[in-house]
Amino acid sequence: MTITITAFERSPDGGRGLARDTRVRWALEEVGQPYEVRLVSFLAMKEPVHLALHPFGQIPTYQDGGLTLFETGAIVFHIAERHSGLLPGDAHARGRAMTWMFAALNTVEPTILELVTAKLVEGDKPWTPARLPLVMDRIRIRLGQLSSHLGDADWLDGAFSAGDLMMVSVLLRLKMSGVLTEYPNLAAYVARGEARPAYKRAFDAQLALYRDMSSTG
């Protein structure tokens, strides 16, 4: 059976590749696995049919035969384990790649999502002007630490892995803020990720979907 993932019917990111289905698309493109996309409206995401796939009413979900997964970390890890190309063969290197996947989602992304919340969700709140500098300070601490580790290397631990896929996906959320330019090696790192043919295919597929929906809306 063909793998099926879910995506926003109308993505709030405007086709910029920030919706989380892009991470799953990218992983599938890296390992050369075909997939289908089922579009879900915001209303349908809260209905029982979708909640049976994703208890928190979000996207993406991943279905392959009798297996259903949610959460991008779990989905990408599953893809990486089943297909070659995203995890090293050496056991130690494999463990480090998995560590970077968790670091991207658990250590780096939460600070970045604070900025998204402060600007988009709480932008009109009276505490936002005082909160934003604190949020940016926390982001810069994480970026400084990541920049120091990366140094002048192309990827986080040798060859490109699922750890890099997740980290680049997380850092992409900062492109519009301009803060990545303060860390040239991280900006170059993200650009290398975006330049990968598999990423371009995933991005173009999501962008085409957004354009199609916009033209018919």
Results as ranks from 00 to 15, higher is better:
70 F>Q: 07
70 F>W: 14
71 E>D: 14
73 G>D: 11
74 A>Q: 07
75 I>H: 01
75 I>Y: 02
75 I>Q: 03
76 V>Y: 04
76 V>M: 04
77 F>S: 09
77 F>D: 11
78 H>P: 05
80 A>G: 03
80 A>H: 01
80 A>K: 00
80 A>F: 01
81 E>V: 00
82 R>K: 15
82 R>S: 15
82 R>Q: 15
83 H>T: 13
84 S>T: 11
84 S>G: 08
85 G>P: 02
86 L>C: 06
89 G>S: 12
89 G>E: 15
91 A>R: 06
93 A>C: 06
94 R>P: 10
95 G>C: 11
95 G>H: 05
96 R>K: 13
97 A>L: 05
97 A>E: 09
98 M>W: 04
99 T>F: 14
100 W>K: 01
100 W>I: 11
101 M>P: 00
101 M>I: 12
102 F>L: 15
103 A>N: 08
103 A>Q: 08
104 A>M: 02
104 A>W: 02
105 L>Q: 10
106 N>L: 12
106 N>P: 01
107 T>W: 00
107 T>I: 01
107 T>H: 01
107 T>Q: 04
107 T>E: 11
107 T>S: 06
107 T>C: 03
108 V>T: 15
110 P>H: 11
111 T>Q: 06
111 T>V: 14
112 I>H: 08
112 I>Q: 11
114 E>L: 09
114 E>H: 06
114 E>F: 05
115 L>C: 03
115 L>D: 13
115 L>I: 06
116 V>R: 03
116 V>T: 10
118 A>E: 15
119 K>H: 09
119 K>P: 00
121 V>K: 02
121 V>E: 12
123 G>T: 14
123 G>L: 14
124 D>P: 00
126 P>V: 12
126 P>Y: 02
127 W>V: 11
127 W>E: 14
130 A>H: 05
130 A>W: 08
131 R>K: 13
131 R>Q: 14
132 L>E: 15
132 L>C: 09
133 P>F: 12
133 P>Y: 10
133 P>Q: 09
133 P>D: 13
133 P>H: 08
135 V>I: 15
137 D>K: 01
137 D>A: 06
139 I>C: 08
140 R>G: 12
143 L>F: 10
144 G>T: 13
146 L>Q: 10
146 L>D: 04
146 L>G: 09
146 L>I: 13
146 L>K: 05
147 S>L: 01
150 L>F: 04
152 D>S: 08
153 A>W: 01
153 A>F: 01
153 A>I: 04
155 W>R: 03
156 L>P: 05
157 D>V: 00
158 G>H: 05
159 A>G: 10
159 A>Q: 14
162 A>E: 03
163 G>H: 04
